[in-house]
């Protein structure tokens, strides 16, 4: 209720939601790559395992840059890495990124030969290194699987750790963001893949994830409405309040329901441009994070 500094309280602008979107998407992509490697479906789903992970480091760097831009005291960035704060999601995120970003590069290194088969490997060290990593491919895959999950959950936990913002203060946000991250990753693979097998496989996964997301969203609102006045107020931001239209139009309709219908139709072999559904999913995922970030900062305790 500090009306004097209210305008400054909206501390997180585009950077944090973008960071979370990029992080979640990268986590999803890496998750699928690692999972399919472990399950031995490397060749069955080559885009998922080999090609799409090349976006992951790019996304992680975009995410990290967004986070860096968000920092107001940039010169002290390194302070993040002088301590580990188990109770601070920000600390978790920083460390997770610190680990998963090199892993994502390594993964790309492992696959670069297959992507660029004609590239001339001049230095023997590189060849040795590749061989060395190849030996531990499964270990790396497991590491990536674990850290991708942590990253994915983290993107949701970051918000839900904030008791002060009733809208964020729900344990559903973690799984919800994780699901959304995986869903956007599946959408990317659908977009990139030319193999119908792989496309349909991931479209089905996406459909399932969308279903879970819708379930979680309904659950979240029910939870809010059954809770205290501040949580009811938080829900009301979306139920008649200022975020009603953007949320139900962009996130739920365009980002979840319509792509789900399109994907069902596609799976039922109706012909239609294959890119529409995944692009909508990506758009919806991005909007989702922006809206939750903004609305969360607008929700507050009454006193």
């Amino acid at each position: 209720m500090n009306h004097l500094i209210d305008p400054n309280l909206h501390i997180w602008h585009w950077q944090i939601p973008l960071y979370l979107f990029a992080g979640g998407l990268a986590a999803g992509i890496l998750f699928f790559a690692a999972l399919n490697t472990i399950l031995g479906r490397k060749e069955k789903y080559p885009v998922s395992v080999k090609l799409s992970p090349f976006i992951a480091p790019v996304l992680l760097i975009i995410g990290l840059s967004a986070l860096f831009i968000d920092l107001n005291h940039k010169l002290y960035f390194w302070r993040l890495y002088t301590t580990i704060r188990l109770q601070s999601p920000m600390s978790w995120g920083a460390w997770t990124l610190m680990i998963i970003t090199p892993l994502s590069f390594i993964w790309c290194g492992l696959n670069i030969k297959e992507i660029l088969p004609k590239w001339d490997w001049k230095y023997k060290v590189l060849i040795d290194l590749e061989a060395f990593l190849r030996k531990y491919e499964l270990v790396i895959a497991w590491l990536i699987l674990i850290y991708a999950l942590i990253l994915g959950v983290y993107t949701g936990i970051l918000f839900s750790a904030f008791n002060a913002r009733p809208l964020w203060n729900t344990s559903i946000l973690g799984p919800l963001f994780l699901t959304s991250g995986l869903s956007t990753a599946a959408a990317v693979i659908v977009l990139m893949s030319k193999s119908q097998l792989e496309r349909h496989y991931f479209a089905r996964i996406d459909l399932m994830l969308i279903g879970i997301e819708i379930f979680l969203i309904i659950h979240m609102f029910m939870g809010f409405l059954a809770s205290t006045q501040v949580h009811i107020d938080a829900a009301n931001l979306f139920l008649g309040g200022p975020y009603t239209t953007p949320f139900w139009l962009f996130v739920v309709s365009l980002g979840l329901v319509i792509p789900a219908i399109l994907e069902i139709l596609e799976l039922l072999h109706y012909k239609m441009p294959a890119w529409i559904a995944p692009v909508l999913v990506l758009f919806g995922g991005l909007m989702f994070r922006f809206i939750i970030a903004n609305a969360g900062q607008a929700s507050r305790w009454l006193y």
Partner: peptide, 26 residues
Amino acid sequence: DMCIGCGACIASCPYDARYPHPDGYV
């Protein structure tokens, strides 16, 4: 000089007690 200005604490305070100082820290 330990604060990176990430804003997490601002978002976390239910009383709106913190603000980002123009010099960067909170």
